[in-house]
Design a protein around this nucleic acid. Structure first.
Lengths: 144, 144
DNA sequence: TTTACTGCAAAGGGTTTGCAACATG
DNA sequence: CATGTTGCAAACCCTTTGCAGTAAA
């Protein structure tokens, strides 16, 4: 498993993009988080990065598959490291009240059932399924 | 199974809200769609409804559980009829290119596996899980 | 006759972009 | 040096809100 930053630099290079201190800092922040972060949360932790640059960097990093955009319950964009960089496959618990997103490990049994269902759905609908997303929506301990 | 509009009126009444022609038209549009619609799509089909009213009505209908907001891959809000009004439980195919969301029927096997996984996750994380969401992300036939 | 609803227009908030300066390969 | 990147500020777009008028219980 290569270093996250080395791999990030590689993936950016494939798009003729550079791995600048700005982008490195964003990746570092996401690598240190145990849940997807909003742009606000990111720039709060990395105040040296201007908001506009954060938006641009997140777009580029997302294009390069270094990070991934996560859809929550609200329209606030959240970001996490790409799964193949961060470690293991996981899903999300989403609080319908405050919008917080928490990671949760995937279960093999569930993954197997999902793989079957995805195959069937793809055939039926002429979709080419690349990935899946399972969200459990409810109330976090703070909002119950 | 009562009529959709009767049931919608009931649920609104429970919140001291009225089932006006505006709201009825929105429900009618969503009832006739076979996939979640964006606000733009809704007002395109129902031009008599001003945009600001559409936003307000969708909020109220959503609070009353007549409709449900659906998160796609982008930040565009999409809406569909509540599942208990529209018929059967389903999941979504999301095109990562154009953002379109298509309904797909749920499989019993998948639901069972998910129920187990949700139980485990809820216990671990102190979440109170109310519903789940399964999205298959890929390319629709148009965007392949 | 009280309370909810509507529609317009203005305000708001998050995101994107133009541009000139800078940095990197 | 050619191209990608940055930071500021302005522009943008979608969504929300104030308000005065309307309609429904």
């Amino acid at each position: 498993m290569p270093d996250i930053h080395d791999e990030a630099a590689l993936r950016l290079a494939a798009l003729d993009q550079r791995y600048t201190p700005n982008r490195r800092e964003i990746v570092q922040v996401l690598a240190g988080a145990e849940r997807p972060l909003t742009i606000n949360e990111i720039v709060d932790v990395a105040p040296s990065v201007p908001v506009s640059s954060a938006y641009r960097s997140l777009t580029v990093l997302s294009d390069a598959q270094v990070i991934r955009r996560v859809a929550g319950n609200d329209d606030t964009g959240r970001f996490e490291l790409a799964e193949d960089l961060s470690g293991e496959h996981h899903h999300h618990l989403i609080c319908s009240n405050c919008g917080t997103v928490v990671d949760v490990a995937a279960s093999p049994r569930l993954e197997k059932a999902l793989a079957e269902a995805a195959k069937a759905a793809a055939e039926e609908s002429d979709f080419e399924v690349h990935e899946h997303r399972i969200d459990l929506v409810g109330r976090c301990s703070n909002c119950q």
